[in-house]
């Protein structure tokens, strides 16, 4: 067998593929960031920085990993941002904000949005990747650096929590 038969040629991101990633996934990453940060400007910054970092490394990113690389970068940026915000935002303000939102909205979709905000960050991340982007457990595990069973457990817990909140809210309504 010739040696070149054994060599798997990897294709890396080029300009056209990078632009395709922008066209196809910029909106998804923006929505993903917006769900986490609840602020349009911050979400836009996340998207911009995500693509900036991706472009810097585009010559080393395999073509088939483009999308997952984008989300990995975005998740890390969001984590950094959230931890930074937690340090500098008063808890009182956060609680007040949460109270105002949850007390005034009875629409099911909005209840669900509020319920989503009550999830721990990791659960929120995995369930958004699952439902918004349609990733399977293995892919989510790669993006979030978790095992497949951990992803499954987080999704289970997230859905159970969401169902519990929905149940309580609908009872109140």
């Amino acid at each position: 067998m010739q040696l070149n038969c054994l060599i798997v040629k990897r294709t890396f991101l080029k300009l056209a593929e990078y632009n395709n990633l922008v066209e196809q996934h910029a909106d998804g990453i923006y929505r993903f960031a917006l769900k986490h940060l609840k602020n349009e400007m911050d979400a836009q910054d996340i998207v911009q920085n995500t693509y900036l970092k991706t472009w810097e490394k585009h010559e080393t990113i395999a073509l088939e990993n483009g999308k997952s690389y984008l989300f990995t970068v975005a998740i890390n940026l969001i984590r950094n941002y959230v931890s930074y915000e937690k340090r500098f935002t008063s808890e009182e303000h956060a609680n007040h904000h949460s109270y105002n939102e949850s007390s005034s909205q009875f629409d099911l979709k909005e209840i669900l949005e509020n319920a989503l905000d009550q999830l721990p960050e990791i659960q929120k991340t995995v369930i958004l990747l699952r439902d918004y982007e349609g990733y399977n457990y293995e892919e989510i595990g790669k993006i979030t650096d978790l095992s497949e069973s951990q992803v499954k457990v987080y999704i289970f817990r997230a859905r159970k929590t969401l169902q519990g909140i929905l149940k309580d809210q609908t009872l109140v309504v």
Binding site: L15, Y18, N19, V22, E23, A26, D27, G28, I29, Y30, R31, L34, Q44, V47, Q48, Y51, W55, L108, L112, L116, I127, L128, D131, Y132, A158, R159, L162, Q163, L166, K167, T170
Partner: peptide, 26 residues
């Protein structure tokens, strides 16, 4: 209870679009 579980499936709001997409293109 099962109906409520079904509702925990999130649906992305596709009307939310990143407004500065052209600036990202190289």
């Amino acid at each position: 209870e099962f109906k409520l579980y079904k509702k925990t499936r999130l649906v992305a709001d596709t009307t939310i679009i990143y407004p500065k997409k052209s600036a990202l293109l190289k």
